[in-house]
């Protein structure tokens, strides 16, 4: 089971006057959909970087399955243990949908035929047809692209998915579809999904809701209808 534990994590950018993240402790477990909401500048992107192994905390530790990130190969960690999806989807524009999904498998040494077979299965799982899978991202709608991105994140075998404003560029219908998909992955397939969002409606859908403010994370038990 893949678990991320943050112990008193602090981070300060070089030259910054104050810490962007202060004594942050949290636990992210499987089979759970987490949301992290907060205003701009609250440290959400920094937290994402730390969780994704793109940077290391200045103080404290981040542990993945009991091992500190500072003690493991972070490139390997990002290749097989953690996946990210983005507001702007960030699919490879020169690869078709199915090639995008195959990519993480191929870089993990999965043979081409096997990767293709698995990619087809994943795309079907997220609701992308075979015809759509042969298109380039520019020929897919926003919702379709995000679903391909989700399939790609599943392809590496990672059990932790970090989603940075995954519905930011989607309409209401597609927002709902994507969030349902993520919820399903968490609830029924054991994924740990961490969604960073400004959208309160999206934040409310999470099993565990966090609010980030001033570099600190606090759990929110419920959101008021009009509150933040």
């Amino acid at each position: 089971m893949s678990t991320l534990i943050l112990n008193d994590v602090s981070y300060q950018y070089k030259g910054a006057e104050k810490q962007t993240i202060r004594n942050l402790s949290a636990k992210f477990e499987p089979s759970t959909l987490y949301s992290i909401a907060g205003p701009s500048g609250s440290g959400k992107s920094t937290l994402l970087s730390l969780l994704a192994g793109l940077d290391l905390p200045k103080e404290g530790t981040i542990e993945f399955d009991g091992k500190s990130l500072s003690d493991i190969d972070l490139d390997l960690y990002r290749r097989r243990d953690i996946a990210m999806i983005f507001q702007a989807f960030h699919l490879f524009p020169l690869l078709t949908a199915i090639e995008n999904v195959c990519f993480p498998m191929k870089i993990n040494g999965v043979p081409s035929n096997e990767a293709k077979k698995t990619a087809k299965s994943l795309l079907e799982h997220v609701g992308i047809t075979e015809e759509q899978s042969k298109r380039f991202p520019s020929k897919l709608s926003g919702g379709e692209q995000q679903r391909v991105a989700i399939a790609r994140s599943l392809a590496s075998g990672a059990k932790i998915i970090i989603a940075d404003e995954p519905t930011g560029n989607l309409d209401v219908e597609n927002t709902h579809k994507v969030m349902e998909l993520l919820k399903n992955l968490a609830m029924n397939e054991g994924y740990c999904i961490i969604v960073v969002t400004h959208d309160m409606e999206v934040a409310k859908m999470a099993d565990v809701k966090y609010r980030m403010s001033g570099g600190m994370l606090e759990e929110v038990l419920f959101y008021a209808h009009c509150g933040t």
Binding site: R80, F103, I107, N108, G109, V110, E114, L122
Partner: peptide, 24 residues
């Protein structure tokens, strides 16, 4: 999907794949 189907290899990124991606 089967986790083992996906994680069939834990080697470093194969050079062949990098080259293939470059030519692509």
């Amino acid at each position: 999907m089967n986790e083992n189907d996906i994680r069939s290899s834990r080697e470093n990124v194969p050079f062949k794949e990098s080259l293939s991606y470059t030519f692509m």
